[in-house]
Amino acid sequence: MSTVEFERVSLRFPHSSQPAVEECSFSVESGQLVVILGPSGCGKTTLLKMVNRLLDPTQGQIRLDGRDIRQFPVTALRQRIGYVIQQSGLFPHMTVAQNVAVVPRLLGWAKERIRERVDELLSLVNLPPHEYRHRYPAQLSGGQQQRVGLARALAGDPGLLLMDEPFGAIDAITRGKLQEEILRLQRQLKKTILFVSHDVEEALRLADRILVMQKGRVVQFDTPFRLLTQPATPFVRELLGADDMVRQLSVLRVETAMAGIPHNHKIQEGAMIRPQATLRQALSLLLRTGAAALTVWEDGRAIGVLTLDHIRSLAMLEGGSA
């Protein structure tokens, strides 16, 4: 797990009148999945590429685990950050196993350890190793390629993953599956993830927090729920509110909207829900059970509550702007 901090970071490309990224400051907590969201050309990919120094800021400082990233040798920095790009960027002349083994090989791992790691990772992303190990990227579907891309990024066990519109070129059904996989891996591996997307639904579905960008600036950095209920600017409201309410409820997770447990809270039988469930599922449970509040339940203990008011506060604001 890693933390990432941006401190007044700007980047101006030579011969360009506008800075691509301007005065961006924010910090990402360890283990969080942050989606960088914005229309094309807003600087989100530029922002991402500064973290592994594919681009260098013209001003400001970026810190990884509290250390200025310029203090690391650049290849060592990149080897400890997983990187996934659109259409996977797999090396077409290498097999799946060789692709996944790239970073471990750069890190100088022993052959046996690399082989074990490759098999472990392919299993993790649901590609049976014996079946896929020796295939070439061209022999895989887009979704499978992206799974290999993910396995490759995870190979060196980085604390931080950078994902640049990884599912942009993938059909809707496969994309949905891959998004679930990301959430599962995130829970399982507790990586810090920076995920660039221009797809609002994807952002709402995946993010612990969303960083909304507009013209190179950070407009708002907050939880999906708060972005929907308290948009900082009309731009944010428009960006997030374009889709209809029911769809938003069906992608927002309970854990992003729940509140802390009040001291007088009584757990009601049957009115319990997983934090990963969607608000839509929560809503139907509330309606079906008639409970005042749902207890959010994980690993045998209550971690929060969700009431109809929470959901309504979202619905009303959105209803008002529609």
Partner: peptide, 12 residues
């Protein structure tokens, strides 16, 4: 994109 992926993974 492939060369950039290689760079981003830490190849010199």
């Amino acid at each position: 994109a492939i060369l950039e992926a290689a760079k981003g993974m830490g190849m010199n």
